[in-house]
């Protein structure tokens, strides 16, 4: 049996590699293994490239730009509705770019690591989004979630993704299908319900803590819903 890295080390490195290419990259790293230090050094050189390549493959620049505008617009509209005066203060408009960028980062990572495959990853990503909402503006976050889900539903990654030559590559053909759309449709439905209730709570003057608790409960139900659908 040829020498190889320990299971623990391999698992740790594997966590950083997007699942779509984890199998072959870990295999290649295993084959080039001569010692733990060399393995870690090689992984540190290889993994960033693999992540960037995966981000490039899973991110459609036009869709991302549309989402950025919608997220920024949602936060802008929500701030206009609740704290109109903060928009005219110093850095009022620039401040809204922070949750927009954070939302985009979560979305990019969600697509790169394909978080929909495991319920706890979905929950982690949604918790991150809700945390951003709690930190900045829950109403804007909910509205942006609905709009982003709608964009994903309408422009889902499938066989129509433009390429420079010869039609869809194998990985795109494999990704297309009703499973992705139904997940997004479910998310859209839940996000729309959450937004409606949040609007209702805001309009009757509920405190942020009540809103946060409601969102947390909705999140737990959502993750359980996803989990039961897969088992």
């Amino acid at each position: 049996m040829p020498p190889g890295p320990s299971k623990r080390l391999e698992t740790f490195v594997g966590l950083w590699i997007p699942p779509a290419c984890r199998e072959e990259v870990l295999g290649d790293l295993h084959e080039k293994y001569t010692g733990p230090v060399q393995y870690i050094a090689l992984a540190m050189c290889v993994v960033p490239f693999v992540i960037l390549s995966r981000i490039r493959r899973t991110t459609d620049v036009l869709v991302l730009l549309t989402e950025a505008l919608l997220i920024y617009g949602s936060f802008l509209a929500a701030t206009w509705y609740i704290h109109k005066t903060s928009l005219t203060s110093q850095w009022g408009l620039q401040r809204l770019a922070v949750p927009t960028v954070l939302n985009l980062v979560v979305l990019i990572l969600q697509r790169t690591w394909d978080f929909r495959t495991r319920w706890w990853q979905t929950m982690l990503a949604n918790t991150a989004l809700i945390s951003i909402g709690l930190a900045f503006d829950m109403l804007g976050e909910c509205a942006s979630m609905v709009l982003v889900a709608a964009v994903e539903y309408l422009f889902s990654r499938g066989t129509d993704m433009p390429q420079s030559a010869a039609g869809p590559a194998l990985w795109l053909k494999q990704r297309a299908g009703p499973a992705v759309v139904s997940e997004i449709a479910k998310s859209l439905l839940v996000a729309a319900a959450v937004t409606l209730v949040t609007f209702g709570l805001v309009s009757i003057g509920s405190k942020p803590a009540i809103l946060g608790a409601f969102i947390a409960i909705a999140l737990v139900f959502w993750s359980q819903f996803n989990r039961s659908g897969k088992e």
Binding site: E24, C45, S53, R57, A165, L170
Partner: peptide, 22 residues
């Protein structure tokens, strides 16, 4: 670098110049 090889192989696959299988 091995990382550059992966990035370029992905790009070649997207361009339809190569195909891959496990």
């Amino acid at each position: 670098s091995l990382g550059a090889v992966y990035v370029t192989l992905d790009r070649l696959e997207d361009k339809g110049l190569v195909s891959s299988r496990l």
